[in-house]
Amino acid sequence: MRALAEPCLIWFTRGQGRITVGGLTRGYGAHNAIFIPAGVMHGFDVGPQSHGSVVFFGRDCPFTLPDTPQHLRIRDATPQAELTGLVEAVLRELDGSRPAGMRAAELYLGLIGVWLERQTVLQTNEAQSSDAARRLVARYSALLERDFRLGQGVADYAQELGVTPTHLTRVCRTTCGRAALDLLQDRRLYEARRLLAETDAPVKEISETLGFTSPAYFTRAFHARIGKTPSDFRKAG
C-alpha cells in the first residue's frame, strides 16, 4: 500500500488481479483504467500476465481531473485505442529528441485528462441508467404480483408506471433477458398450473380467475407455453 503526492492513472491492457484504492478492493482486468488522486492510499497485485502503463500527472498538475478515485471498465474498442494512443504519444515525446517534446507531452497529458473526464461521465450516466432500469423492473414485478389476475396487458402496466410499453419491454430485456409480456404470461400460467394441480376448479373458472378473455384463449396460451392443454396437464399430474 502506498500514497503518492501526485495523481496517476493506471491503464491495464492485459491480465487480471485485485486493486485496493481508498480501502475498497475490486478486481481488475484488461482495459481497466483506474484513476487515483494524490494522497489516496492504494496497492494492487500484479500477476504474471499483467501488463499496462502508469501515467503520472505531476504534483502541480494544471489539468482538470476527478476529485475522487475512478475505476473505469472500458469495453468499447474506440476509447481503448484512444487511451493507448495518447499514452504512447506521451512516451514518444519524452523519449524523443524533437523540439518542444516536453511541452507536447504535457499537452497529451491534458488530452488524457479530457479522455478520463469523458469516460467518467459516460460510465456514471450508464450506472444511473442501469439503476433506474432495475428500479423500474422491480416496480413492474411488484405490480404483476399484485394484479396478474386482473387480465391487464403490458400497456396497462406501462401506463401505471408512466412509461411506454416499448420502453418497459426494452428495460425488462436489459435487466433480466426477458420481455415484459413473457414475465406477465409466465406468472399467470404458473398460477394456472398450480390451480390445475392443487384444486378441482373447472378450467373455465381458472381462466376467469386469471383474467383471460375466454377459456379458448386460455387453452391456446397454456398449450403454446406448456405444450399441453389445461385438461391434459391436470390428467398427467
Rank of each mutant, 00 (worst) to 15 (best):
P202S: 08
A104I: 13
I36K: 00
A77K: 09
A30S: 09
P79S: 08
T64I: 09
R178A: 08
P62Y: 03
L136V: 03
A158N: 03
T25L: 01
M102L: 14
T169A: 14
L181G: 12
G113L: 05
M1F: 11
G113R: 01
Q152M: 11
H51I: 00
E82S: 13
G211R: 08
G237R: 13
E145V: 10
G96W: 01
C61N: 08
A89V: 07
T213I: 13
C176N: 11
T68D: 08
G177V: 02
P230G: 04
L143S: 12
R134Y: 11
L210F: 07
S141G: 07
L143P: 04
R2E: 09
V137C: 07
G52P: 04
I34K: 00
R194T: 08
L184G: 02
T219E: 09
P7C: 01
R103M: 15
H42F: 12
D182E: 11
A77E: 15
G47H: 06
R92L: 15
R18I: 09
G39C: 02
L72I: 08
S53Q: 15
V40R: 06
Y217K: 15
R193P: 03
T124R: 15
E88S: 12
V171Q: 02
Q119W: 05
R170S: 11
H42K: 06
A216P: 08
T219C: 07
P69A: 02
G162C: 00
P202Y: 05
L161M: 00
I19Q: 04
Y108G: 02
G153P: 05
L144R: 01
E145Q: 13
H167N: 09
S130V: 14
G58I: 10
G52W: 04
P99G: 09
G58D: 07
D186F: 09
V21D: 01
A179V: 00
L65D: 05
P230N: 01
A192L: 10
V21N: 01
R188I: 00
Y140C: 00
P165M: 12
L136G: 06
F148K: 06
V154M: 04
L161T: 01
E205D: 15
Y217C: 12
A38E: 02
E93N: 12
A133H: 07
L94M: 10
A224V: 13
V154F: 04
E106Q: 13
I112Y: 05
C61M: 05
A236C: 13
T68S: 07
A216D: 13
A81M: 14
T164K: 01
I226M: 07
L168M: 05
V171Y: 03
R149Q: 10
G177M: 03
R2D: 09
L4W: 10
C8Q: 14
Y217F: 14
G39A: 00
G110P: 00
T166M: 10
H223M: 13
P202H: 05
D156C: 04
D95W: 14
R187Y: 05
